[in-house]
Simulated scan of single mutants.
Amino acid sequence: MERPTGALRIKLDRLGIALSGLCVVHCVGSILLVGLLGLGGQWLLAPEIHEIGLGLAIVVGAVTIGLGAMRHKQVGPLFLGSFGLALMATALFVPHGVAEAGLTIAGVICVATAHILNLRLHSF
């Protein structure tokens, strides 16, 4: 199997950052819209949206953080990203609500930070 090019790794890390940001926006935005305005609860807080989005973010995060660690040989982003991925995976198994949102947000912050570190450590 061919190793991904540097440009592809950069794009994947950027995709991971974008997915992490979307997770946070979805969690916080959904809670605010439903809690304050009572709007869109049946769609915004649907567990399926969270499960699919979080599952996709976990896969992208695991692949790109792993590729980055193999490339730059630094374990910091790998440990931080792995911790974040564990928090995100845990969020898939707790009841839908505040605990789930807290685990998701904490996890995606760790993973997004690991993606940013990967980008900073990437050298051509």
Rank of each mutant, 00 (worst) to 15 (best):
E2Q: 02
R3F: 02
R3I: 02
P4F: 01
T5L: 06
G6R: 05
G6I: 09
G6D: 06
A7V: 09
R9A: 01
R9C: 02
I10C: 12
K11I: 01
K11E: 04
L12D: 01
L12H: 04
D13Y: 07
D13H: 12
R14K: 10
G16V: 09
A18G: 11
A18S: 14
L19M: 15
S20G: 07
G21C: 12
C23D: 05
C23Q: 05
V25P: 12
V25H: 09
V25A: 14
H26E: 07
H26N: 04
C27D: 01
G29N: 09
L32A: 05
L33N: 06
V34G: 03
L36Q: 11
L37Q: 01
L37P: 02
L37G: 05
G38T: 04
G38W: 13
G38M: 08
L39A: 09
G40Q: 13
G41Y: 12
G41F: 11
G41L: 09
L45Q: 15
A46H: 08
A46Q: 12
P47Y: 09
I49K: 13
E51T: 14
I52S: 08
G53A: 10
G53H: 01
L54Q: 13
G55H: 13
L56G: 03
L56E: 03
A57S: 15
V60F: 02
V60L: 01
V60Q: 00
V60S: 00
G61S: 15
A62F: 03
V63L: 01
T64L: 05
I65A: 05
L67I: 03
L67K: 00
L67M: 05
L67V: 04
G68E: 00
G68S: 15
M70D: 02
M70Y: 08
V75G: 04
G76Q: 01
G76E: 06
P77M: 09
F79K: 10
L80Y: 01
G81M: 02
G81Y: 02
G81K: 00
S82Y: 00
F83I: 15
A86D: 03
M88D: 00
M88R: 01
A89Y: 10
A91E: 13
L92G: 14
H96A: 15
V98L: 15
A99K: 13
E100Y: 07
G102C: 14
G102S: 14
L103R: 01
L103G: 04
I105H: 12
A106Q: 11
G107Y: 00
I109H: 03
A112F: 07
T113P: 08
H115G: 04
L117K: 05
N118M: 08
L119W: 08
L119Q: 10
L119A: 06
L121R: 08
S123H: 03
F124P: 01
F124K: 05
F124Y: 09
F124M: 04
